[in-house]
């Protein structure tokens, strides 16, 4: 009996130990960013200081630099605009494409699906050179529209593939029932298939938006004026001067940009995981 309770306690400690470790691991970057945001530069640079706590009184100076001496707010707005536009474009194209590929019978559907996914694997570091020619010919240099045009080139293939798995998991019977019940195929798709695939659609939204927020190579190549930059380019460009890093402001900029995404993930984490696993099996 005593051995049994001991074992149970052991399991419990092990369980919470593992959960605790993971929590620390994932929460640490946020803690580090938050602490550094309010640190004085002298506190940061003194070697003998404990880096996890404040050794000198906290300051708002770093935030002042971020908001008053850079166009940080502008960059945030730019990022959000591009993000929303890319998400909308991705949804408009990837949902019908994924559905069509999922329902295309025979081997063609599957091979096309794999082919589309493969294009996602071509790295931006290779593609940005030809892409910059395209952007140049279209006269979109130094415009946010260049990013709105280029980002879907990697969000659409992946999201199409992801949604294809999702749609494949939906029994055909449901659409057929809806078609008999009085809808056209398109009507059945809109009223039955899409509502059932909310998890997949959400996954696509979060995934595309995150990709846009973190993308660096294209944004750096196509955008040169300060007012058109996104967070991922603006922050390192203006808060790193040669070998001088404005650590406090850098961390503040990263923290503010990453928290909304983190909250979004937390709200939809179950559905997000469902989205990925369905896509994985089918």
């Amino acid at each position: 009996m005593a051995a049994g309770t001991g074992r149970r306690w052991g399991l419990r400690v092990g369980h919470f130990g593992v959960v605790g470790l993971f929590t620390l691991f994932t929460a640490f970057p946020f803690y580090w960013m938050l602490v550094t945001t309010f640190k004085r530069t002298s506190d940061l640079l003194k070697r003998g200081n404990n880096p996890f706590v404040y050794n000198e009184a906290p300051t708002l100076e770093n935030l002042r630099v971020l908001f008053q001496e850079t166009l940080y707010v502008r960059w945030l707005v730019n990022t959000a605009l591009v993000g929303v536009a890319v998400v909308v474009i991705t949804l408009i194209l990837a949902i019908p494409a994924g559905y069509a590929l999922a329902r295309l019978t025979g081997r063609w559907g599957e091979q096309l699906g794999i082919g589309i996914f493969l294009t996602y694997l071509v790295p931006p570091t290779l593609l940005f050179i030809p892409m910059s020619r395209v952007i140049g010919d279209l006269g979109l240099q130094d415009s946010l529209w260049s990013l709105v045009l280029v980002y879907p080139s990697f969000t659409i293939p992946f999201c199409t593939w992801l949604l294809m798995g999702f749609f494949k998991a939906i029994p055909r019977d449901l659409e057929e029932a809806a078609m008999i019940d009085g809808l056209s195929r398109f009507g059945a798709f809109v009223k039955v298939v899409i509502p059932i695939s909310v998890a997949g659609v959400l996954t696509v939204v979060i995934f595309s938006f995150t990709l846009v927020m973190q993308e660096f190579v294209y944004a750096l190549t196509f955008i040169s004026s300060v007012r058109q930059m996104t967070v991922s380019v603006g922050v390192p460009t203006f808060l790193v001067h040669g070998d001088v890093y404005f650590w406090g402001s850098l961390m503040a900029g990263s923290f503010i940009a990453s928290v909304p995404i983190a909250i979004l993930y937390n709200f939809f984490v179950d559905r997000f995981i469902a989205g990925f696993t369905v896509g994985a099996i089918k």
Binding site: D173, E176, A177, M179, I180, D181, L183, S184, V192
Partner: peptide, 17 residues
């Protein structure tokens, strides 16, 4: 199309939404 045939169908899987 199916919707114009004045039919109703019950599927083996029931196909409830």
């Amino acid at each position: 199309p199916p919707r114009a045939r004045k039919i109703a169908m019950v599927f083996q899987s029931y196909a409830l939404y």
